[in-house]
Amino acid sequence: MTLTTNGAPGTPDPRGSVAGLLLAAGGGRRLGGHPKALLGFRGRPLVEHAARALHEGGCAPVCVVLGAAAAEVRVHAALTQCTLVDNPGWPEGMGSSLRAGLAALAATDAGAVVVTLVDQPRVGSAAVSRLLAAHRAGAALAAASYGGERGHPVLFAREHWAGVAAAATGDRGARGYLREHAAALALVECGDVADPQDIDTPADLTLLHRAAGGTEGRTPSH
């Protein structure tokens, strides 16, 4: 199922609030051990940009899962409007962070969650807004797509959280769950407003420069 929709940031959701969940715990092993959350982007830590995209896209509350250099992120990143969750099991992979974030959000009244990754600087609020619009239109499972290929962000209505958490192991995150429920998954085309390219290796740091229009991709000095 493919949806093309244009959501207005901040539009009230009649199905209930939609939380934002930012996975930002990785240690940047292939980046020489530089945590991705602290990479410099437009003069600030990259994690701030990713959290802002969720806020401006209409998500509330916003939960940020930290792992590697969590204490440093808390000191240097302005995340005062977010709920911060430390995941001591972050070396196990993305699945552990997804489980930690969903567990933290279980205490809220959110009816759905949009999950984003910290290392995709060209995914912003416009893509988040489109997923919220798809949810308002009735989608309980939705994912941004790029030329028809599934990517991030992804949205899970609350009734899917337990299943997602149970399936989230290692670095697979929610991929297996989404494959198993492909028939119910709404693909929301976002290729005209976002780019899913992520930062994994030093060569990918040029993406920060291009996305920021001049800001180099490097860890900010403190």
Score class of each variant (00 low, 15 high):
Ala144Pro: 09
Ala162Ser: 11
Leu141Arg: 06
Gly147Glu: 05
Ala143Trp: 02
Arg99Gly: 01
Ala103Glu: 11
Gly95Leu: 00
Ser145Met: 05
Ala140Thr: 08
Ser97Leu: 00
Ala126Met: 05
Val114Phe: 07
Ala112Leu: 13
Gly138Trp: 04
Leu98Tyr: 04
Gly151Glu: 01
Gly93Met: 02
Val118Leu: 11
Ala112Asn: 13
Trp90Ala: 07
Ser125Lys: 12
Ala167Gly: 08
Arg122Leu: 14
Val123Tyr: 01
Ala133Lys: 08
Pro88Trp: 09
Val115Glu: 02
Thr108Leu: 08
Ala143Gln: 05
Ser145Gly: 04
Pro91Ala: 04
Ser125Trp: 15
Ala166Glu: 02
Val115Tyr: 01
Ser145Val: 09
Ala142Asp: 01
Gly147Thr: 06
Gly101Ala: 01
Ala126Arg: 15
Gly151Met: 10
Gly138Ser: 09
Ala104Glu: 04
Pro91Ser: 07
Ala100Asn: 05
Val123Pro: 01
Tyr146Glu: 05
Arg150Met: 11
Ala162His: 12
Arg122Tyr: 09
Gly101Ile: 03
Ala127Gly: 10
Ser97Asp: 05
Val118Trp: 07
Ala142His: 04
Val164Lys: 10
Ala139Gln: 02
Trp161Ala: 03
Ser129Gly: 15
Leu102Trp: 06
Asp119Tyr: 00
Ser97Thr: 04
Ala106Leu: 12
Val128Tyr: 05
Trp161Lys: 04
Ala140His: 06
Glu159Val: 15
